[in-house]
Design a protein around this nucleic acid. Structure first.
Lengths: 216, 216
DNA sequence: TGTGGTTTATGACAAGTTGTCATTTTTAGG
DNA sequence: CCTAAAAATGACAACTTGTCATAAACCACA
């Protein structure tokens, strides 16, 4: 997680760093990104970078959290519009979001993100390895909001733990489907509309279950 | 994907490289792994490494595929034992596999894998970035076998595409639950038995659906 | 305005990394 | 035994990263 010094920065400078990070992480995944490129681009000296972040993955986690907040905000709106029905909200939202992912500003970042895999830092001091998504207060707020907007009575869910699970599973399917899009995006059936349909079908399994109930 | 030269190697030498990879990727995730460590460990000269692999992520993808084959083989056995019921097979298998992950040989590798995130290589020549899991013929065979062993009549699945989807979703939930274990493994409720229960509950959502059917 | 203490900025640097390539060694046929 | 193709080798240039001693900026208070 970025150090306080980073948040104390003047908006303009902070933004310059975020922009540089976006450019770098859009051009290549964390694995091949370099601090050098970012500081050159953002025009900050090497030492400053380490004044703000532990390392590259620290910045990456922060940048990712910004994007996550975006997604979450829009999703909340969708749930509201769908009167608390999270399944139909996500299905509807998937269509819009598809456009954003395919042709929006973060297009290349998403590509690298979804196509990527395992990464993080050697665990030195007993801290766990893995790039940490920075959990801002804003994000906690958004998560709580989402949970509030969902009409849980529509689902079989009874306790908070299960609520979290369902939310996670839905997002998992959501992300997984997008990852699939990028994996196949060189191939034939990478039509955005196709992807949306795939998301819908996948969500349907979760919504209605995959097991046949009556014998044919 | 490793070059033919690698597969032509004498078993002993090939194994030495695989063992070195295992040690390196167990100690730290791809992001911080180094070719240097591996060639020193495996006692092969630098140039040879590049005779066998494109780069580190190439070796990583190959190593990962070996582990995946292991999982797949065991899963097939479980499905057979469960008379083709993939859901109960995975639930049962999850328990055994949990032990393997927590205390087995690949323990540290899994930890790094599940805790890690996004990684891959800069797309240079139009090839997609992302570390590719090496799809061996063996793996294709295993996949086909699994599909054959599953009794699809138990599910609502009618076509092959949906079969693939369900298989993917199940594995996703499976992996996701393990990832959760590692994320929380510093925390309180990281009891292996708990994780197995969590996998079961998650699979239940997919199996029976999350939407309430009758009004209360 | 001056002063001292804390925070932030800076860039040179050691130590390490990667991919290449000219050269040597091995291998397999004829 | 000889030769052409395949494989092995390690020195090297170009690049990375994290650190650290030093300089600058900031701030509170007299």
């Amino acid at each position: 997680m970025p150090k306080q010094t980073f948040f104390n920065l003047k908006d303009e400078k902070r933004q310059r760093i975020i922009d540089a990070a976006e450019r770098e992480f859009s051009q290549c995944p964390l694995y091949e990104s370099s601090i050098n490129n970012i500081i050159k681009d953002a025009k900050i000296p090497r030492g400053s970078f380490y004044q703000y972040f532990d390392d590259l993955s620290d910045l990456y986690g922060y940048y990712f959290s910004l994007i996550l907040e975006d997604i979450q905000e829009n999703l909340i709106d969708s749930v509201q519009e769908a009167d608390g029905d999270i399944f139909s909200a996500v299905k509807k939202y998937a269509g819009e979001y598809m456009k954003e992912i395919i042709s929006g500003n973060h297009r290349d970042f998403y590509r690298n993100f979804f196509l990527g895999a395992n990464i993080s830092k050697r665990s030195k001091d007993g801290k766990h390895p893995g790039f940490d998504v920075y959990h801002s207060d804003r994000m906690k707020e958004l998560r709580a909001n989402l949970k509030k907007e969902v009409n849980w009575k529509l689902l079989k869910v009874t306790n908070e733990k299960d609520q979290n699970m369902i939310q996670q599973l839905i997002m998992m399917i959501f992300f997984h489907s997008f990852a699939n899009y990028f994996v196949h995006s060189n191939n034939t059936d990478s039509d955005p509309a196709e992807v949306q349909k795939e998301i819908e079908r996948n969500l349907n399994w979760l919504e209605f279950g995959a097991r046949r109930t009556e014998d044919k």
